[in-house]
Amino acid sequence: MTPAETAETPTPVSGTEVMTYREALRLALREELQRDERVFIMGEEVGVFEGAYKVTAGLLAEFGPDRVRDTPISEEGFVGAGVGAAMIGERPVVEIMTINFLLVAMDQVVNHAAKIGAMFGGEVRCPLVIRTPNGAGNQLTAQHSQSFEGWFAATPGLKVVAPANPADAKGLLKSAIRDDDPVLVVENLAIYKERGEVPLDPEHLVPIGLARVAREGADITLVAHGFATVRALHVAERLKRDHGVDAEVVDLRSLRPLDVDTVVESVTKTNRAVCIEEGWPTYGVTAELAARIQKACFDDLDAPVERVGMAEVPLPYAKGLETAAMPNEDRIAAAVLTTLGLRG
């Protein structure tokens, strides 16, 4: 424990409470702000406006403008400021309104934050957290409907997590804040309103690099992260009801480090895999999964590994086109049935 952390041992808190994903994130932020003076929040509209998606609502009033810092619209500037502050011991939590805007700060994330540890031979660390939602579905159109987490997960030096439910949102965000490396926490626009049981214990941490079997099943493995996990779970219930298919759902939770072991254990049991992501699959998270599954499970596979993601077009505005392009439940179900040989 460092001197800046609270010296007293936290009182164990038991029990859970049903809350939204957004509230779970807020709870994690509040607990970590209380626990560690070095933690501060920075981003566009996080303070007075109470967050573009209301994740930080109430925190300015509780912690003041030094801990909850509004920034100008300067993503490269304030992401870089987060990197610099982290280099001398602060623990900045930078909010980027959506992952689309993180591209403006790509140089600071990929060329700076990700390089610090290795390029300086371990002499400096960068305990930075960047929180940002990906996702589509609200007719936000081509520039505001993207999911780039695969780009960041492809970068050695970064860690990337993508919680799929409120409990993991709390536990992974807290782990990210306490981690000594730059961690990108990928949220999702549609998932903020999802509800679930959340442990109230301020020491509820979800380890980085550990996937979760979100639903047990014997017939096929669905691998997903973030909101795609929510979709996969819905599809699994529907397939059970309509086709008697018993699908297992693996929620990756972390993308880098990637828990391939949990995926392999599942595929070894079910012999079939469909990988799902919100973003474009070509060169994507599902491409990486397919490569690793075919190598690790070559003798266990009864069908080619299938992938479902965003159709590879800039997302259009018209509702019907948008829905058709997304990795919606109909498309996931069709992929599963095809992989099982149940669909012509």
Binding site: K159, G209, A211, P257, L258, D261, V264, R292, I293
Partner: peptide, 8 residues
């Protein structure tokens, strides 16, 4: 954290 990333 990376211990489970070796497969494949």
């Amino acid at each position: 954290q990376f211990a489970r990333m070796l497969a494949g």
